Amino acid sequence: MKKLGFGLMRLPLANDDFSHPDKAQLCDMVDLFLAKGFPYFDTAWFYHNGQSEAAVKECLVERYPRSAFLLADKMPLVLIRKESELEEYFSAQLARCGVDYFDYYLIHDMGGNRRKAAEDTHVFAFLSEKKKAGLVKQIGFSFHDTADVLDGILTEHPEVDFVQIQLNYLDWENDTIQSRKCYETAKKHGKPVIVMEPVKGGTLANIPQEAENLFRTYHPDLSVASWAIRFAASHENVMLVLSGMSTLEQVKDNLSYMENFSPFTGEEYGLVQKAAEIINGSIAIPCTECAYCINKCPKDIAIPKYFALYNADMRELGTKAWTAQTMLYRHFSEQFGKASDCIGCGQCETMCPQHIHIREWLKKVAARFEGTL
């Protein structure tokens, strides 16, 4: 299997509405992806407010024979309150996707409190039975936590076939995300790795000019994003790198260097290390815009949008009297709750894969943008 997978978390949108993927454009993207020999598609219950699975059914499943693609989905463990609900959600996902089985099926986010929930609901045993019945071909879990926690789970559950972790050159040595340590832990247990967030939600496609110049000088014809995806794919125990593609142009770019993939050289590893040092010095909030936090916000605060604006604004010259980010914040605050509307409940932080102190950052966002509202 080629090392690039289609992540269906950041699809093109119709009328800029997160709940309404642009299915016409998605069909074109799916067609090209499959035509170039890339069969892997990854969705989940939560993506696009529950509409990603429906988009998969319409744009992929109903248009191609089942043998033409590999489909991955995930058990939304955070929603499960009792063991009997596992069957309800699994059956619902088969129906939502329009398939009789999943090629790859994961427990969604086995970090934090989800580990206890997994044991209480016996979800590993449940998935093992589905595998025996042929309803799942490979079982695994996605993971956002520390390497020692991952080591514990893999020690207790050697029956899993693979793990899905966040891995990119910016987080490779990050003490919170621990990309390298988690990768090495999976390798120690003999579990192939599927990579998520290789471009860190687009962060590594829009890097400071100084870092971009490093890449352009070495490979003038390769996109900035290609460095992030090739870095992840170059590790020997990585079986697949997921890319959340939002446009046909992004699909074409990814295919241009992954169709005949060339692993990193030693010099290239050195360049991304230098780039990471530059980027880390310019990013204020390490948000990947996964939007999990929004699902739990009682005030409907557009947290990822505000964090992206804040990061962009922090890169602006301090002498500027007005920035485009200020205008955008004004527009967003008319549709959603303002940063200052935060009541400090902390529900967003329980959902954040990046372990961001969201409440504290919202105070800084409010201080930066709301003086002109």
Rank of each mutant, 00 (worst) to 15 (best):
G281K: 07
V61R: 04
M1L: 10
F6M: 00
L8H: 10
L317V: 14
T176N: 15
A205F: 11
M258G: 09
T326K: 13
L34V: 03
E58F: 08
L106N: 03
A54W: 07
R180V: 15
G371A: 12
T319S: 14
P208S: 02
T176V: 15
I303T: 10
W172T: 13
E316N: 14
R63C: 09
S19N: 07
G270H: 13
D221F: 04
S84D: 11
G112M: 03
L77Q: 04
P39Q: 01
I279H: 05
I207L: 07
Y89T: 12
C97L: 02
H144T: 05
P304I: 14
I139L: 02
D109E: 13
H235D: 07
D22L: 10
S234P: 08
E316G: 11
N260W: 08
K131R: 13
D145V: 07
T121L: 11
A117C: 08
L362D: 08
R216P: 15
W322F: 15
K338G: 15
I153L: 05
H157F: 07
H108Y: 00
F33G: 00
H355Q: 11
P39A: 00
A68K: 03
L32F: 14
L94R: 02
R180L: 07
Y306H: 03
F69N: 00
F69W: 04
G98T: 11
C27F: 12
K299V: 07
G318E: 02
K36H: 10
K3M: 08
M29K: 03
S128L: 13
A302P: 08
S282N: 10
H122P: 15
Y40S: 05
S246E: 09
E349T: 01
L106D: 01
F369A: 03
C345H: 13
L240V: 01
G346C: 09
A125Y: 13
V56N: 05
K363P: 00
I285L: 06
Q25Y: 09
D253H: 08
M327P: 07
D313I: 05
K200I: 06
W45G: 04
D22P: 12
Y64I: 02
F307Q: 03
S223F: 05
L362F: 08
Q51M: 13
D148M: 09
M75E: 06
T146Q: 15
I278T: 11
K36Q: 10
S52L: 06
S282I: 14
D22G: 09
E87L: 04
R359G: 09
S226F: 04
K200E: 12
T185M: 05
Y89W: 05
I279N: 05
